[in-house]
């Protein structure tokens, strides 16, 4: 089964990378862009298991390694079983 994990900076954490991308988009004429936040997406191949069990695994992986809870939030979804 396959899961996607999204790691994003918490609200209020300054994201200079996002700001640089936003400025570049403005330079290209996409002036409607009001804010950009850059995060990470991880595609994880898991051995088949119950959805509930997979979610427990994913949450634990995020808390232990994939996200830094001081500055980041995470969410995950199971995209195929």
């Amino acid at each position: 089964m396959k899961a996607k994990v999204y790691i994003t900076l918490k609200d209020g954490i300054h994201d200079p990378q996002g700001r640089a991308v936003q400025q570049s988009l403005h330079t290209l004429g996409f002036e409607a862009v009001q804010d950009v936040r850059v995060g990470k997406c991880l595609e994880i191949e898991l051995q088949d298991m119950e959805k509930e069990a997979a979610e427990i695994f994913l949450k634990s992986m995020c808390q232990k390694l994939l996200a830094n809870m001081v500055i980041e939030d995470f969410r995950y979804e199971i995209v195929s079983t």
Binding site: I13, H14, P16, Q17, A20, N68, V70, I71
Partner: peptide
């Protein structure tokens, strides 16, 4: 910081 022996975290430098 990552090990939790000190509090806080590092972000990208403001100037990138």
């Amino acid at each position: 910081l990552e090990a939790g022996l000190l509090p806080g975290a590092m972000l990208r430098n403001t100037g990138l």
